[in-house]
Design a protein around this nucleic acid. Structure first.
Lengths: 108, 108
DNA sequence: ATACTTACTTACATAAAGTAACCTATTTAG
DNA sequence: CTAAATAGGTTACTTTATGTAAGTAAGTAT
């Protein structure tokens, strides 16, 4: 019932990138190393889901996690080479959004 | 609590494209006009969600729907100009997936 | 009349995401 | 000493999204 007309690598990439929040987190990290709470406040994701996503991305080799045993502890997240290689995709989306997306008026 | 450090147009584009199935449907339609059941069987989506997604995409001006009152009725879906303009994004993802995604062995 | 087709919709079940409160360790304030 | 703050989470519970299966409409074939 489910014959893979579509390339499985492509499908895998899509399912990774279209996980909710994943692309936004990567986009944030494109501008450099950030801490948990910075990412959280910049994209408005809940702590629960952010910690899930960061774990997933670590497993996928997209994000690096560095623990600095200061007090309180500092944990820095950054992109790996694989993560960085997603930049062209995000830039295409950014570019497309400027050309084709129009904002609705969200309360005056 | 949710301060928009990120461009709202970009965020909107991301939320559109990372809706589950949306990117795969667009990708399918890049190869030309298709019918409901063709899309359904090629990407393995349920009829319920496919009809939801197609409606959403119509609202977003990405997909065109053409009814041909044959019997049984034929309904053709294709990309609008806006939909077509997403091609570079999908191609970047395709390209990235070939370079960076490795398949696991899924049963011998 | 019955069965078949396409493109759906509806009802119900499960999975994913959101919210708020809590946890651990350490430092600072009173 | 107790209370509050901080960073980075986790836990329990609720809401939303998705999946599954069965049903619908209109017309055709048998």
């Amino acid at each position: 019932m489910n014959r893979p007309t579509i390339c499985p690598k492509f499908e895998k990439a899509i399912s990774l990138l279209s996980q909710r929040w994943t692309a936004l987190v990567i986009y944030q990290l494109l501008s450099g190393t950030q801490r948990f709470s910075e990412i959280q406040s910049s994209i408005g994701i809940s702590g629960k889901v952010l910690s899930e996503r960061l774990k997933d991305m670590e497993h996928h080799g997209i994000v690096k996690r560095k623990v600095i045993p200061d007090t309180p502890v500092i944990i820095e997240y950054s992109l790996t080479e694989k993560g960085m290689s997603l930049e062209p995709i995000l830039r295409e989306i950014e570019n497309w959004s400027q050309l084709w997306i129009q904002l609705e008026n969200v309360s005056s």
